[in-house]
Write a protein that binds this DNA or RNA. Structure first.
Length: 488
RNA sequence: GGCGCUAUCGUCUAGGGGUCUAGGACGGAUGGUUCUCAGCCAUCAAACCGGGGUUCGAAUCCCCGUAGCGCUACCA
């Protein structure tokens, strides 16, 4: 069993591509097969090396590693189509000898005119096949003279039937497509041709790809037949959609489509994967968050949906927060510490230097308030040495009538506290409240504001315990005298 | 235009003839969590595209319609 993911390096990895890669990866993992990465860079105008690097980096970040690919090689390489050009030409030869492919000398202008005329006459804009009847001697002479030409495939006059794993039997009537180009005049293969040659040579057994390729499949089936090769099994996964149900794309106001954008926004790979994995796939039970291992166990082609799915950033956000709240402490550490080459560093430098134990305890305390890793600096701010200026709401809490008294009393109580742990701090605060006859919000908020500069965050006793007595007392004392200073 | 695919709460989906007064999740609303929160808990509102069949019985099967999307390139 061998599957592949075949991106064209013409931009960044799209969430739809990431999902396709994930499904392929899952299928390979589940059946102990190989997951092949092939770069489809035959569009020289749009393909870039930078894009290829970006795609590979995004896939690695997601943890979707490949068994064979452009960087690590494999028995069926090279894995970059631009390095396989001789292979495509070599495979065109027998087809030409068999009369299944012919030289076409039509120019772009002629083709455009032909298409325009067909459309105007209400006919489908497909190639007329006029070069098909060129005498081979004449064609040879023109080619020998250096006249640019492409190679077109002689489309057979029979219907094509596809047994798709998600769509069932799909029949394409004959006569729907004209003779299509297989080798361009610049010597590069077209998508359908390169795809068929490569999938066969790379011994791909299952092609899991997006539905947009469904209409290409009859062309590919014709090529398999012409070569006398058995086609692989196909599964066309429904598209991921914008909120208006058009194919998801980069557009103003819509959710980010690039995997890298989510990474830079502080989303973790597990969240993206578990969200994407459930777009168009259902595990068969009520689980809503599945790990890769869960998905590997659950993944079957016949639980793939056939209708498109709208991408919902709100649900992805929930998924990300869920992972941040629930993942094992070590995983949270790893996410926080990781700084990708182009990923922002979400962990403040001073926090990086903390002893592991303290860092883990603080991360554990603040994780419930994290929606993305980008929230880390904000949540960690109270724990660094120089607390940032209080937020307006905190300022307000400190300006309350009883705030200074509360802070001063808390400072005194904390200074004498024997049990400097969350439990001890909690009872100290309670005692302060009882002595002053203040409770609830009026009691806690000024202390919280003095300690953290904010009005919300983790439980107060936990914050105090983590902060340490010295810093707590200092900050509370400062808040305890402030109103007097302000009055002057 | 042609061909193809698709059609359940706002969104992701379960459902494959009776167990559906249609289930779960996100989002929303409400309440709780002897301090706060984007956290946690609880409750509520919210859907079978339309029309014909088949059947004792249809969200489930068939047909037609409608709508949306995809493809129709010397892009992939």
């Amino acid at each position: 069993m061998r599957v592949r993911f075949a991106p064209s390096p013409t931009g960044w990895l799209h969430v739809g591509g990431a999902r396709t890669a994930y499904f392929n990866w899952l299928y390979a993992r589940k059946h102990g097969g190989a997951f092949v990465l092939r770069i489809e860079d035959t569009d020289v105008e749009r393909s870039t090396a930078a894009s290829e690097r970006g795609v590979l980096e995004d896939l690695r970040w997601l943890g979707l590693t490949w068994d064979e690919g452009p960087d690590n090689g494999g028995p069926h390489g090279p894995y970059r189509q631009s390095e396989r050009l001789e292979l495509y030409r070599a495979h065109a030869d027998p087809l030409r000898a068999a009369g299944q492919v012919y030289r076409c000398f039509c120019t772009d202008a002629e083709l455009d005119a032909e298409r325009a005329a067909a459309t105007a006459a209400g006919r489908p804009p497909q190639y007329s096949g006029r070069c098909r009847t060129l005498a081979s001697a004449a064609a040879d002479a023109r080619a020998a003279a250096g006249e640019p030409h492409s190679l077109r495939f002689v489309v057979p006059a029979n219907e094509q039937v596809l047994d798709d794993a998600v769509r069932g039997r799909v029949t394409f009537p004959a006569g729907m497509v004209g003779d299509f180009v297989v080798l361009r005049s610049n010597g590069l293969p077209t998508y359908n041709f390169a795809c068929v040659v490569d999938d066969h040579l790379m011994e791909i057994s299952h092609v899991l790809r997006a539905e947009e390729h469904l209409a290409n499949t009859p062309r590919q089936l014709m090529l398999y037949a012409a070569f006398g090769w058995p086609p692989p099994a196909f599964a066309h996964v429904a598209l991921i959609l914008n909120s208006d149900r058009t194919k998801m794309s980069k557009r103003a106001g819509e959710a980010a489509v690039a995997v890298g954008d989510w990474r830079r926004a502080g989303y973790v790979p597990e969240a993206l994967l578990s969200y994407l994995g459930l777009l168009g796939f259902h595990p068969g039970d009520d689980r809503e968050v599945l790990t890769r291992a869960d998905m590997t166990a659950a993944f079957v082609l016949d639980r793939l949906g056939s209708s498109g799915s709208v991408f919902d950033p709100a649900k992805l956000a929930w998924m990300n927060a869920h992972w941040l709240h629930e993942a094992p402490g070590a995983t949270l550490q790893a996410w926080a510490l990781r700084a990708g080459s182009d990923a922002p560093d979400f962990l403040p430098e001073s926090v990086r230097a903390w002893p592991l134990e303290l860092r883990m305890a603080v991360l554990e305390a603040v994780r419930g308030n994290l929606a993305t890793l980008a929230d880390l600096p904000r949540e960690l701010a109270p724990f660094v040495d120089e607390v940032p200026l209080p937020e307006p709401a905190a300022e307000q809490a400190l300006a309350a009538a009883s705030a200074a008294a509360v802070c001063a009393a808390a400072a005194a109580a904390f200074a004498e506290l024997a049990d400097w742990r969350a439990e001890g701090v909690k009872s100290a605060v309670r005692t302060v409240g009882e002595t002053l006859g203040i409770k609830g919000r009026e009691l806690f908020q000024p202390i919280r504001a003095a300690l953290t500069g904010r009005t919300h965050g983790p439980e107060l006793p936990l914050i105090a315990a983590l902060l340490g007595r010295e810093r707590c007392v200092t900050r509370l004392e400062r808040a305890g005298v402030r109103p007097a200073a302000e009055r002057e």
